[in-house]
Simulated assay, not measured.
Amino acid sequence: MPKAYWIARVDVTDAEAYADYMALGPAALIGNGGKLLSRGGQAVALEGPEPRQRNVVIEFESMDAALACHASPEYTAARKARAGAAEVEILIVEGLPE
């Protein structure tokens, strides 16, 4: 079964409120099987729109696992904490078969 990659593009609009998300979000991702591969490091746009402030890549064992994490009670609470604190785009991409 191919792995899946959660790609999040984030512009923080309220750093103080976003800190509430950071207290919950990473733990929810890891606790639901995610492996953080990149989180907020340098990003360069070679084509297309400029990167957002934070660009995050998280590996999951499968597309189902990534979707289940997003729907989990833990990540739902993190999303609620993040509401109004950031502009967020999240995409889940299925990897190649192993």
Rank of each mutant, 00 (worst) to 15 (best):
M1T: 10
M1F: 01
M1C: 04
P2L: 05
P2V: 07
P2Y: 01
K3V: 01
K3M: 02
Y5H: 09
Y5E: 09
W6K: 02
W6S: 06
I7G: 04
A8I: 00
A8M: 04
A8T: 08
A8S: 12
D11E: 11
D14R: 09
A15V: 11
A15W: 04
A15Y: 04
E16W: 01
E16H: 08
E16Y: 00
E16N: 12
E16I: 00
A17R: 13
A17G: 05
A17C: 03
Y18C: 01
A19V: 03
D20W: 00
M22P: 02
A23C: 02
L24K: 15
L24D: 07
L24V: 05
L24Q: 11
G25Y: 06
P26R: 02
A27F: 02
A28I: 03
A28F: 04
A28W: 08
A28S: 15
L29R: 06
G31L: 09
N32M: 03
N32I: 10
G33E: 06
G34R: 11
L36G: 06
L36A: 14
L37E: 12
L37C: 10
L37D: 01
G40N: 10
G40W: 08
G40F: 07
G41V: 07
G41S: 12
Q42S: 11
Q42K: 13
A43H: 07
A43T: 13
A43Q: 07
V44M: 11
A45R: 09
A45G: 14
L46G: 00
E47D: 12
E47I: 10
G48S: 05
P49W: 05
P49N: 11
P49G: 13
E50I: 01
P51W: 06
R52G: 00
R52L: 08
R52A: 09
Q53W: 00
R54W: 03
R54V: 12
V57F: 10
I58M: 05
E59Y: 00
F60I: 09
E61A: 13
E61S: 10
S62E: 02
S62G: 06
D64S: 09
D64R: 07
D64W: 01
D64T: 05
A65S: 02
A65L: 00
A65C: 01
A66N: 03
A66F: 04
L67Q: 13
L67H: 11
A68Y: 02
C69I: 06
C69M: 15
H70P: 01
H70I: 09
A71L: 12
A71H: 14
A71T: 08
S72F: 10
E74P: 04
Y75P: 10
Y75F: 15
Y75G: 07
Y75C: 05
Y75A: 04
T76V: 12
T76P: 01
A77D: 05
A77Y: 10
A78F: 04
A78I: 01
R79E: 12
R79F: 10
K80E: 14
A81V: 02
R82V: 00
R82E: 14
A83T: 10
G84I: 02
A85Q: 06
A85T: 05
A85F: 04
A86F: 09
A86T: 08
V88Y: 08
E89Y: 09
I90F: 07
I90K: 06
L91C: 08
L91Q: 06
E94Q: 14
G95E: 07
G95P: 02
L96D: 05
L96F: 14
P97L: 11
P97A: 15
E98C: 04
E98D: 15
E98H: 09
E98T: 05
E98I: 01
